[in-house]
Each structure stands twice: as C-alpha cells, then as structure tokens.
Write a protein that binds this DNA or RNA. Structure first.
Lengths: 110, 110
DNA sequence: TATAAATATTCCTTTGAAAGAATATTCCTT
DNA sequence: AAGGAATATTCTTTCAAAGGAATATTTATA
C-alpha cells in the first residue's frame, strides 16, 4: 500500500489528478501546479519509485503517465471495507448499547 | 480527502484495519499493536478529528468504531481513475456493476 | 561543436509530525 | 470519600521529508 503514503503529499496528489487526463511532461506539470521544475522532478521521482507513474522519453522531454497497478491495489484494499458502508454494521450500535445497559444494571445491583 | 493523509501513518492504517472487524477499546488497540496507550490515544485522536472513527463511551472505556463516509469518499475518488485500469472491453461490465451498486445503496438508504 | 532547452540531482535548511515521558482527567468500585 | 483502572493531554525531543538554490545531465538544433 505504498500508494497511500505517496499520495499523502498534496502536490503529489495533485500531480496524479493531473495525469488522470493523460500523460504530461515535467514542465507542463510544474507550470500547472505553480511549482519550480526541480520540485516537480523530485515529486515525480517519488511517484516513479513507488510505481505510480512510468516515464516515456520523447526527445528533450519526458512524458509521465499513470500506472494502473497501485490503483487496483488500493481498490482491492478499499473493497475489504465495503461491508462497513453497506450498513450491515449497524447492529453493533445495539450491541454496544446492550453492554452499557448490562454494566449499568451490574453497578446498581450491589 | 483527509483520509489519505491520515492513513499515511502506518500505525493508523493498522488501527483502521483492526477496526474493520468491529469496534475496539483504546487498551485493546494498544495491546494488539504493541504500542503504549498514550500513542494509541493520540492516533485515535487524529483519526477522530479526520472523521474516520467515532467514539462510544461505555463505563470506564471508550469503543472506537469506523465511520463510513471517508471510505465512501475515497471510493468515489478512486472511481474517477477507473478508466485507467479498465479500458475498452470491461467498460460495459463495470457500468452494469456500478448500476447494481447504486441500486443497492438506494434501497438500503430508505 | 557550441549552445540552449528540458530535466535530474545534490546539498543545505526548514518544518511538521511522531515518539517518549510525565501528568491530568474521567469514571467505577469499595 | 478514596483508590484504582482506563483514557486523554501536555511538553519535549527526535527524525524524516519537503523546499530552496545551485549545478549536473541529456538531447536537440544551429
């Protein structure tokens, strides 16, 4: 789950969202994000090391493009939580409520 | 997308995965993760501030439980990247699957 | 080949967040 | 009311990672 750690940096999240619409060069990314080129390169290095992007050199420039695997992985992980928001979990509230009642009764029992 | 920044800390990711199986108290979490109680409390504070968990006090203890909204939000965000890893052939299947999910959600919403 | 454009790397400084330790708070039990 | 268990908070220290600035590298073109 490297993707989460890597995307926790706001600029990198932004870069990934830019690349959602297609590959871009370093310069284009730097310009769109209002950052200097070295910073863009550094963030792209981190993204590349984590496997989130791949590079396609073209003449002078380098196009960065999203890779799918990390997103698939995140999707799989997220799916393991799906039962939580499909509201099968609400009876746990009742369970906790029962616990509270039991303890209340015990304490007032003597 | 606070959820990504909050889950970038490994211990917090671990806590969330523990809570996937149901609510736990601070002490239980600290024990299972081999960390000291104050650290557990501090991480839970961060998770709580970000809306990832909610608290259910019960006598001496406090049960922490996952909230669904941030996960839904992450799911929505992730879906905006789905075209990247599921091109042309699978599109129809995904569309149908999404429709089914939507109907499921609607019916459980009431 | 020299120069310019695009990109990468290195070094240094700064900053934010996590850990550690001690203490405070809350609530139950006796 | 006192003591104890569970949890929260505060303060300090530590450390990794991001930014800034300068420079190196690569590739194209004159």
């Amino acid at each position: 789950m490297k993707i989460i750690r890597v995307l926790s940096e706001p600029n990198r999240l932004h870069i990934v969202e830019l690349l959602r619409d297609g590959p871009l060069t370093v310069g284009e990314i730097a310009a769109k994000l209002g950052m200097r080129q070295p910073q863009a390169s550094k963030h792209l290095r981190v993204l590349s090391d984590a496997g989130l992007v791949e590079v396609h050199p073209s003449a002078n420039r380098r196009f960065y493009k999203l890779r799918s695997e990390p997103f698939k992985e995140l999707d799989t992980w997220l799916n393991s939580f799906r039962s939580i928001w499909e509201d099968r979990f609400d009876r746990l509230d009742d369970y906790l409520h029962d616990i509270q009642q039991q303890e209340k009764n015990q304490s007032s029992k003597k």
